[in-house]
């Protein structure tokens, strides 16, 4: 499916004139969260979506996840329209969404249990969960419960849970939004290190301009009222990137350009 001999490779994800609307409480008209968004994402790229609160960046991400139904337009993954969540996509949530009654290892196993991958025994699932716990640097904390972990560690569990199902597409909804600045930078670097190993297609929603540039191959800039895509900027900075990258002339130029688009 993914290795078709075409001259122009088909985009992994295609968002076609997508509009997302929500019912407003106590009002007849609907709230337009995303208005007529168009986007093509190539396989293996890291895309960040940046914009102010209420610009519909999370709604865009959740429609790709199949968790939000679009009012009009559609999302295609590998050419097929998305009608709901699928095994090819996994989501990392802003509020972690970990089950407090499950230990770290059991939380990582959660998605694997639900996806019922054929031919995997209970032991296989646990073994796989252990691998991903190790990958995100939580070895030794397998039997801790979420309330015993710091915010950064909790999100590591969230990331491990999403990676464990081996999705083609990783969708991250402001995953580091509730973390302090230092933890945030560290988690960003580690996420990129993990991503560089297997180059899954990744979509990352954030409201931090620096984070958006640092992580991305392409930055999707969104504006509010109504929520819409205003610009897509390719970030041409060499990888692997480091803290010094953020002081480079190019980085500062990108930062200025995005800030102008946002204001």
């Amino acid at each position: 499916m993914d290795a078709r001999p075409e001259l122009e490779p088909a985009p992994h994800i295609r968002v076609e004139s997508l509009t997302v609307a929500y019912e407003k409480p106590h009002a007849a008209e609907k709230l337009i969260a995303v208005s007529d968004a168009n986007l093509e994402i190539a396989r293996g790229t890291f895309i960040t979506i940046v914009g102010p609160s209420g610009c519909g960046k999370s709604s865009l991400l959740l429609s790709i996840a199949g968790l939000v139904r679009p009012a009009t337009g559609c999302v295609r993954v590998n050419g097929k329209p998305v009608s709901g969540p699928g095994r090819d996509r996994a989501v990392v949530f802003q509020d972690f969404a970990l089950m407090p009654w499950r230990s770290v290892i059991a939380n990582v196993r959660f998605g694997l249990e639900l996806q019922r991958l054929p031919g995997l025994t209970a032991e296989d699932l646990t073994a796989r969960a252990h691998r991903y716990v190790e990958l995100v640097g939580l070895k030794g904390f397998e039997h801790y419960h979420p309330h015993q972990l710091s915010g950064g560690m909790r999100q590591r569990v969230g990331i491990a849970r999403a990676l464990a199902v081996d999705p083609e597409i990783l969708l991250l909804d402001e995953p580091f939004g509730s973390l302090d600045a230092q933890t945030r930078d560290l988690m960003g670097s580690e996420l990129i290190a993990i991503w560089e190993r297997n180059k899954k297609t990744a979509l990352f929603v954030t409201h931090s301009i620096d984070e958006a540039i640092f992580l991305a191959d392409q930055v999707v800039v969104m504006a509010t009222n109504p929520g819409r895509i205003t610009e897509i900027i390719s970030v041409d900075l060499p990888r692997p990137r480091s803290v010094e990258t953020m002081d480079s002339k190019r980085f500062i130029e990108y930062r200025q350009r995005i800030r102008e688009r946002l204001s």
Binding site: A65, L67, G84, P85, G86, R87, R89, A90, V91, F93, D95, A97, M99, W101, F110, G111, E113, L114, Q115, V165
Partner: peptide, 28 residues
């Protein structure tokens, strides 16, 4: 938490899965 149910659904959980893996243990 609504997010627990959304997380389960994001991993393709059926209504029954949501009941057994989230609603029941969560309200225990």
């Amino acid at each position: 938490e609504r997010s627990w149910i959304v997380a389960a659904r994001s991993f393709c959980a059926s209504s029954w899965d949501v009941f057994v893996k989230v609603i029941l243990p969560g309200s225990l």
